[in-house]
Design a protein around this nucleic acid. Sequence first.
DNA 1: CATTACTTTGCATACGTATGCAAAGTGATG
DNA 2: CATCACTTTGCATACGTATGCAAAGTAATG
Lengths: 337, 337
Amino acid sequence: MKKKSVNAMEVAKLANVSQSTVSRVFTPGSNVSEKTKEKVMEAASFLGYRPNALARGLIMNKTNMVGLAMREIQNPFYHEVLGKFTKGLREKGYHVLFVYTENDEIQQEEITQFLEYNVEGVIVTDALLSSNVVTQLQESNIPVILFNRYSHELSCHSVSCDNYSAAWQIADYLYEQGCRRLAYITGRKNTSTSQDRQRGFCDYLQAKGVKVIIEEGNYTYEGAYKAALNLLKRNERPEAIFGANDITALGALDAAKSLQLSIPEDVTVVGFDNIEMAAWPANSLTTWEQPVDEMVKITIETLINQINKKQVDAKPKLVSGKLIKRDSTKKSKVVDK
Amino acid sequence: MKKKSVNAMEVAKLANVSQSTVSRVFTPGSNVSEKTKEKVMEAASFLGYRPNALARGLIMNKTNMVGLAMREIQNPFYHEVLGKFTKGLREKGYHVLFVYTENDEIQQEEITQFLEYNVEGVIVTDALLSSNVVTQLQESNIPVILFNRYSHELSCHSVSCDNYSAAWQIADYLYEQGCRRLAYITGRKNTSTSQDRQRGFCDYLQAKGVKVIIEEGNYTYEGAYKAALNLLKRNERPEAIFGANDITALGALDAAKSLQLSIPEDVTVVGFDNIEMAAWPANSLTTWEQPVDEMVKITIETLINQINKKQVDAKPKLVSGKLIKRDSTKKSKVVDK
DNA sequence: CATTACTTTGCATACGTATGCAAAGTGATG
DNA sequence: CATCACTTTGCATACGTATGCAAAGTAATG
């Protein structure tokens, strides 16, 4: 059996006070005299006492836990995201109950776990949830925030990069460089990230009268590699390839290299995310930097506001980011001259 | 305020039974008649009742939570590890309280969290803990397992790849190919992984009368890149470089390429981990595959055994893994002939 | 019907903490 | 010393569940 942990009662006895007093010593903002506080603290540290978070959560109806669900994926971008969430939440006093989800949608099982442990909020990263799951959470008054995904059908908050606008600007950048044959390698087709990036990219170019070739990449290196081979073996080889994310773009980059094409002269490549690998000299990938810090900060703030019932407008929040120019695209014209 | 969640009492009233009966319905192995079970289940699902894991954990002294601490790091290997742990633990009915640690050692704050939430065990990945932290956990009877790290001073279990033997075999492989000028790029010098790999590598070669050049890489791509440049600009350029992990090896690979050296003719590179990126055609890195699935499985089993007080011998557990040969090393002689 | 053996249920209590309320303590003022 | 205002403390109870114990129910047997 597990050894029973020391409780407030034992500390109380040792310090010659009541259990209530011990509790008050560990509750910030309570009225305890300096003298007894010291006495209690001494007894507590002597016994190695720590307040039991479960009992505290039970009575205060506040667990200080947040559920974090993340889709398992090859993309190191989300590893970084996870790190920042964990740190950011802890700074606000929250702990993370973590779950990997293997499917595109969060499953019932994962939500059940969150409900049973009374998490105060849920963050869903790189995945969606079915509407009945959202309903369940809302019935229990547990706010949900989608990170880097959104859905018009679901009435929950979301924070993402303004993928549409970013892709639009990438298209503009490539077009201004003189590219007229352009291709887009998709991510997983049912993700809002991939869809928005495609729409932004195509909308800009369509307005300029340029048609975009689309190939499916599925957000994997292997998929993107094959897709790029298809593209680059065409009669009219594209001059520029925009990959739905950096992993996709790296697949395209390597595919081009495998065909002895030189970058950026023969073909130009742009990615999305600005993962660390993009900066590696061998890749030197031009890409769109998502402002992860800001996105995480906004997500956490929004979540905490909702937890505290400061109702926020349920509109999807968008942040912009910026283009990081590297060697996988040509130097801009002004510099060239 | 958060809406109060439905509790067993309300279900009991609706189903015309006592709260105890409701509890028994949700406790596997309890004696309840089929008829009342149905009645209760109906009422429960009508009200959307779920047992409160906190209250349950409080009274049963069993939270079904495991603390997982991981060092933040560039290495995608640990992202994979995290995924496998989460899945594996859930299969055993455990939930994950997750923490990132920014330092080489787990900090007091992280442990406090684990203690307060009464986790039943702690898994520490890619980091160590100070001995007084181990003491704290042991006093509370919470088992700890180090994953891919060990320490002779700390009396806790550990599971890792047999880094010494693996590095020894890598050295053998390179030596048999005829390499006589060899270099090792280290990881973070105070990690047992990097130390063991260095020792295994050097011990083998020393026995053969070959000296190894050591450069510091710090487990980062950038560090390894610089280290490799130092190595490759020497008068006597090494024929083979062994990187402390795959990220290190990839840094070396790219550094070699940047010097127009061809791989594996001019220089041969070997890594460690077999992350997905190693298989990418542009890298095609020979590397040591850690049997992650097995390592995770053993870790979880050992932990659960300890939780259930089936005392296991506290010896460090080692698993072997195997060499994955790719294009960054020469084909083996037999094939060459 | 009485007895026995067994299953099913309810009562009461326990887990470790927080908090409203009242009692006790402290110090200042007249 | 009496009064008042204020701080500090303890008592009792509540949070939602699990479980030992006894009571009630069921069925079988003589």
